[in-house]
Design a protein around this nucleic acid. Structure first.
Lengths: 211, 211
DNA sequence: CTCAAAATCCCCAGAATTGGGGATTGTTGA
DNA sequence: TCAACAATCCCCAATTCTGGGGATTTTGAG
């Protein structure tokens, strides 16, 4: 079965050009074309396309807001941005809004097709220059790593359950342990993390990426 | 001028195989091979290779620590991870340590070559499945989106104290409230966040960047 | 001004957590 | 082989949370 692609793009000639290209390429088809996010949000329906190609610089709602709303309504829908913008802010917003890919309009048709194929397989796609910026953004917002508290395997496991919000009893049931054993492990965890409550432990665990 | 590549890889047959492949491919050359990070850090020198291909699962110093030290000494050196691991933690650590790419060992030679070319051009390279995980990690550490749970100002304030690990009594003291007031606020917070304990609330708050 | 929302306070009872004690059984590295 | 450590389990008492009820006062937007 070929990959069905929907296009959201205000420039009619670009829109039709991409659609024609897709329909002329074995393995792809395009039967949904929209000139705006509003139109897409209103008209798109089951059966959903496999992938939505989304422009950013649209009249009315921007493509970034568009992908946010599309993903909200259809969380499993794959949206790939296809745009001329390569500034950090737009990349950042798009990816945070749930886009599965970010391509620049100067990409060759082969690159776009390859990207669509990869996304359809469950991956994500970016042009290398975008990937570079993503990595840079990634480092800029990454929390600092801290020293190891050398928790044992069991302790780490129990800490994960704490983060999930489980009570002593729930953890005991899940791991087939006595509540007292869970109690003991948690006492040791508190000692190693230097905390005195579940909330503190959870907070520390999440902030320091212990889980 | 061809792209010069150094290899850090403990398995001799893989190491020599990649080197042979590179030297047999027009546009690439490989004249630096190391079996460990220690060896690479000691022997690598000007003129630096254009790119270092780094394994992760090495004897002695891991490739992640290796890229950190290499980038520390040569900030402009490009390092690409080539590994069998695809867990979030190793990806995260590698990229934060300064890697310009992350490839899986099951990638075809063509993909590896293409990635090296892109990195040499100043981009970054990832296999699509890795890119997917990077985007997911990206979202997980991205700064706040605004109030989706419409907590009031007071409720948010109290949630912050919960995240800090405070007890009802400590919060009451800090905000000059009665414990019962804190109790009431927390009951409302639980309702809005759809949780039933402090740990769950803290976990949700941190994961969704509500604080 | 007026009304709804926010913020404040109170009681109760069952459940859960915390911090002290202990103890036994494996595993494992020196 | 033996000590250190991980993992398991138990008791007790004090404290803290959670989930129901209520209630009153402040505040802010229309």
């Amino acid at each position: 079965m070929s990959i069905s692609v929907a296009i959201v793009e205000d420039n009619a000639s670009i829109r039709d050009g991409i659609a024609r290209l897709l329909n002329a390429t074995p393995g792809f088809r395009c039967n949904q074309k929209y000139a705006s996010c509003e139109e897409a949000l209103q008209s798109i329906k089951e059966p959903l396309p496999d992938i939505v190609l989304m422009d950013i610089g649209l009249d009315g709602m921007s493509g970034i807001e568009g992908v946010r709303r599309l993903k909200q309504r259809y969380p499993n829908l794959n949206v790939v941005m296809l745009t001329v913008y390569d500034d950090n802010e737009r990349i950042f917003q798009s990816l945070c809004s749930g886009a599965s890919g970010y391509l620049l309009k100067n990409s060759s048709p082969e690159v776009v097709m390859a990207a669509l194929t990869e996304v359809h397989r469950g991956g994500a796609a970016m042009t290398p220059s975008i990937a570079k910026k993503v990595l840079s953004l990634f480092r800029s917002i990454a929390p600092a790593q801290t020293e190891s508290h050398n928790l044992t395997k069991r302790e780490t496991e129990i800490l994960e359950h704490l983060v999930a919000g489980s009570s002593y009893k729930m953890i005991a049931d899940a791991l087939n342990l006595s509540i007292e054993t869970v109690h003991t492990h948690i006492k040791r965890i508190y000692g190693k993390l230097q905390v005195h409550s579940k909330t503190e432990a959870v907070s520390k665990a999440l902030r320091q990426r212990l889980v």
